[in-house]
Design a protein around this nucleic acid. Structure first.
Length: 602
DNA sequence: TGCGGAAGTA
DNA sequence: TACTTCCGCA
């Protein structure tokens, strides 16, 4: 449970899901097969980003059965398991295409496959899933906008691909003692010691032995260059400085290929993490961390995914957040010792949350849909076939309750997901209605702190919902490294856990004051950004979202970083995303004034 | 070929 | 929880 009391889906945490684990989950397994050339004839990426076709259902079933020691496995059963993922939004069926499914990458946890390679379409290595051809249109199911695949060892570092692949390979192999194992070759490649590694371990395993976290970070440093086969951000339709967002976020941004963008995925690699150039600079690291953090939250990644880095502020709603740096407040004092923050645990305990966050409610069942649930299906569901792929644009209405939305979003067509802005109020309502409440808010009493999410257009409401509901802080999973983010949750009103500099308990007054001044400064800086944002928004929601993000990332990076650096964690927590920036600012001021009177110290 | 309910399993 | 197994239905 996160400090805020939120809980991430189990599947996001389970170490057993790690490659090579006997407990591997089906989707992990599928990914493993997909990445292996040797299974190209059995299963392969095809079509849109994340879409894959099972060319030999029986074989896939057999492999799966072998892996799980279920000799009786067959495609019928396997497909049932896959269908089971529909509800979890991990997968969805590609309508009209036999044996074709599509990953909702954003839902997947990259933790165990931190470097999964997200490539691009046809003709590319199996390890590389088709990438959106460049459209910013998000086509993934509404529920998973940011589809980042978690499996990603390769994603992050193509250079490590081979070793990773080998590692991963073992995961594909069956460990059955009964000799059902089908891929001995894979097994050989795998070392017994490697089995059952946790996310952390997976990370490390993927990296050169001695590389510190920085090694991961630098991957993000480079600007993605679509033209460059080695581009770290092959998936990104909009090449640019925004490379930082790549690994985790890129998928989210540009999940779906769109015709209008001439972007050509790089065939061979695609590891977002593999930048055309690396940089270890703090900024990049920060960005990386930020992106990472965000992705963890946004995509419901396992907390383990968080790097052991203190003071990372988790941006609340991902997309918007990214766009607006100031909001993200990634505070990463480099000098800070890596590792969990002592205060983190405390925080967690301090905010036991009553809510438990789970994946969104499953999409409406066939029956429900058939019966013609008035809600979403009103428009076009009938025409579509059974799966969620049916094209809907019914995003128009966000159901009153967060839960209610689910079905709708589910129906939304990937192709034409209309983005609906979710206002803060709405979000809040969702949360409230959903029974989710951010303790922080409550505790604070200050509306300005930790705004749920900036309004942002999102294709998938589901995800958004999740994101919104998702608390800022990840749970301190047993498996996970301590959450650097924990302190993020600290509210201004309460004892400040830990400040960025490692300072504990800065007087509220002081903090606010500091923040205020910074805020104002930021506003000045942000002026330009805002203008840009507006422009971007005006251009058209989703369409430009990816672009906006990247652009923002690139152009604003400097300013952002500045702001980020200037801002303490606390500030980061409190500041809302840009659109709301001003508002937040004023609120802050108000709050500050109020608090200054009320609080005399910590 | 695909869906999804239901019960069962570990 | 994450399937596995079975099955009726479309």
């Amino acid at each position: 449970v996160t400090p805020a009391g939120f809980v991430f889906p189990d599947w996001a945490y389970k170490p057993e899901s790690s490659p090579g684990s006997r407990q591997i989950q089906l989707w992990h397994f599928i990914l493993e097969l997909l990445r292996k050339e040797e299974y190209h004839d059995v299963i392969a990426w095809q079509g849109d980003y994340g879409e894959f076709v099972i060319k030999d259902p029986d074989e896939v079933a057999r492999l799966w059965g072998a892996r799980k020691c279920k000799p009786q496995m067959n495609y019928d059963k396997l497909s049932r398991a896959l269908r089971y993922y529909y509800n979890k939004r991990i997968l969805h069926k590609t309508n009209g295409k036999r044996f074709t499914y599509k990953f909702n990458f954003n839902k997947l946890v990259l933790v165990n496959y931190p470097f999964i390679e997200v490539g691009t379409g046809r003709g590319i290595p199996q390890s590389a899933p088709p990438v959106p051809s460049g459209g910013t249109h998000f086509r993934f199911p509404p529920s998973t906008p940011s589809d980042v695949l978690s499996s990603s060892e390769e994603l992050r570092s193509p250079g490590m691909f081979s070793s990773v692949a080998r590692r991963m390979a073992r995961g594909s192999v069956s460990d059955c003692s009964d000799g059902t194992s089908t891929n001995s070759e894979l097994e050989e490649a795998v070392g017994a010691d490697e089995r059952g590694v946790g996310a952390e371990r997976a990370f490390r395993g993927l990296l050169p032995p001695r590389l510190p976290h920085e090694s991961l970070f630098r991957v993000y440093g480079g600007a993605p260059n679509p033209a460059d086969p080695l581009s770290p951000f092959p998936v990104s339709p909009l090449p640019g400085p925004g490379g930082l967002l790549a690994p985790t976020l890129s998928p989210a941004l540009s999940m779906t290929p769109t015709p209008h963008l001439p972007y050509t995925p790089s065939p061979s690699l695609s590891s977002p993490m593999m930048g055309s150039h690396f940089s270890f600079n703090p900024e990049d690291m920060k960005h990386y961390l930020q992106a990472h953090t965000q992705s963890v939250y946004n995509y419901h990644l396992s907390p383990r995914a968080f790097l052991h880095y203190p003071n990372i502020v988790i941006p609340q709603p991902h997309r918007p957040t990214l766009e607006k740096p100031p909001t993200h407040h990634l505070h990463l004092p480099l000098s800070h010792p890596l590792g969990p923050h002592p205060g983190g645990a405390e925080e967690v305990q301090q905010h036991p949350s009553p809510f438990k966050f789970k994946l969104q409610p499953p999409p409406l069942g066939r029956k429900q849909r058939d019966s013609g649930s008035s809600l979403a299906s009103a428009s076009s569901s009938s025409s579509s076939s059974s799966t969620s792929q049916s094209s809907f644009s019914g995003s128009g209405q966000l159901g009153g309750s967060g839960l209610a939305v689910e079905p709708i979003s589910d129906i939304e067509s990937e192709e034409e997901v209309e983005v609906t802005d979710i206002s803060e109020e709405e979000e809040m309502n969702h949360i409230d209605e959903g029974g989710v409440f951010n303790p922080v808010h409550q505790a604070n009493g200050t509306s300005s702190s930790c705004p749920p999410a900036p309004p942002h257009n999102h294709q998938d409401e589901d995800d958004d919902e999740e994101v919104f509901k998702t608390p800022a802080t990840p749970p301190l999973g047993s498996a996970g490294p301590p959450f650097p983010l924990l302190n993020l949750q600290s509210e201004p009103g309460q004892a400040a856990p830990i400040s960025p500099g490692g300072t504990r308990c800065i007087p509220l007054k002081l903090r606010f004051k500091r923040r205020w001044s910074e805020d104002q400064k930021m506003e000045a800086d942000g002026e330009r950004d805002e203008a840009e944002d507006k422009k971007v928004r005006a251009d058209g929601g989703l369409e430009t979202k990816g672009e906006a993000m990247e652009e923002a990332g690139g152009r604003k990076r400097g300013a952002e970083l500045e702001n980020v650096e200037r801002k303490g964690v606390i500030l980061g927590l409190m500041l809302p995303p840009p659109p709301t920036q001003r508002r937040a600012s004023s609120e802050l001021q108000r709050a500050t004034a109020q608090l200054s009177l009320e609080n005399t110290g910590c």
